[in-house]
Computed example of a mutant assay.
Amino acid sequence: MASSSSAVVAGLTAAALATIGFLGHRAAANVPPDLRRPGADAAPAVREAAPGKDHPAALPTGSGRGTRVVYSLADDRVWLVEDGGKVRRTFGVSPSTVDPAPGTYRVTSRSGSVTGSDGVPVEHVVRFANVDGTVIGFSAAVDGSAPELDPAERTGGIRETRADGAAMWKFATIGRKVVVVP
């Protein structure tokens, strides 16, 4: 009985720590650029994904096989996955106002730096889908800002930090598989 009670406490502790980490990440993503510490954009490499669907770094089941980018619409999270299922990096993102349908896509184009659909200069743009004329892709704002979404505006930029954008840029070359999960 005592070992079963210990397992429950350990499970609850792990869940609480995962929740605190996730909430801390979301809060840090909303800090105005002028209040950030120098180097705060530098995200650490991924922690090994723990098993369990509730852990924010756990790779979603049914997200395909092989080397791929996985984007979860519900979790606003991306995983860069190597062949064999090893997660190279995972990070939270700020979604666009237009979502691609769940499914498998390929990286179709990339741009080093452009102006985003919201008028903000962005870098490391990796495009993979088109929804009714709105191009969908990952990018990082040069000023480190997160988009201010206006539901009336159709935007396709999925915003990531500059450090995450640099990692995506190296990983998601033309033709790389992108799996979108609900």
Rank of each mutant, 00 (worst) to 15 (best):
P121V: 01
P147M: 00
A57G: 07
K53T: 12
S63E: 12
V142E: 09
R77E: 06
S94G: 10
V131T: 01
R65W: 10
V142K: 13
R159V: 07
H55G: 00
T134I: 07
R159Q: 06
G64L: 06
V122P: 01
A141H: 14
G137I: 08
S139K: 11
H124M: 03
K86I: 10
T115M: 13
P51K: 04
P147Q: 00
G66I: 09
L80A: 10
F91K: 02
A50H: 07
L73P: 02
V81S: 12
W79Q: 00
G144N: 00
I136G: 03
I158P: 05
V69Y: 10
V69D: 13
A101I: 03
G116W: 11
A140Q: 15
S96R: 12
V93N: 10
G112T: 08
V125T: 10
V131C: 01
T104L: 13
S111C: 11
T90D: 10
A74W: 12
Y71H: 14
A163V: 02
G64Y: 07
D164L: 01
F138L: 04
S145D: 11
V131G: 01
S96G: 15
D118H: 11
A74H: 09
V120M: 15
V135R: 05
A141P: 14
F128C: 04
A166G: 06
K53P: 14
T134Y: 08
G85C: 15
F91H: 03
A141R: 10
S117A: 03
V70N: 03
T161H: 05
G133Q: 02
A101M: 05
I136D: 02
T115Q: 14
R89F: 13
P95W: 09
F128T: 04
G112H: 09
G66Y: 09
V131Y: 01
T104M: 13
G62V: 04
R88F: 03
A50W: 08
S109T: 02
T108Q: 11
G144E: 00
R162T: 07
G52Q: 00
G62R: 04
E148F: 12
R154T: 05
S139Y: 12
G165N: 03
G112S: 12
V93C: 12
D118N: 15
V98A: 02
V131N: 01
P151Q: 09
D143Q: 08
V107G: 13
I158K: 09
G157A: 01
A140K: 13
V122H: 02
A49I: 08
T67P: 09
L149N: 06
G116M: 07
T161C: 03
S145A: 15
T155Y: 02
S139W: 14
Y105W: 13
A101E: 07
A57E: 04
R89S: 11
E160Q: 09
G66T: 12
A58G: 06
P102Y: 04
R89Q: 09
A50S: 08
A163G: 02
S72E: 09
A146T: 11
A58Y: 06
V135F: 05
P102W: 05
L80P: 07
P102S: 03
G92H: 15
G85T: 13
S72D: 13
S145Q: 15
T115Y: 10
R65K: 11
S111Y: 11
G156E: 04
V87T: 09
G103L: 07
D150Q: 11
R65F: 08
T97F: 03
G85H: 15
D99T: 15
S117N: 02
V98T: 04
S63I: 10
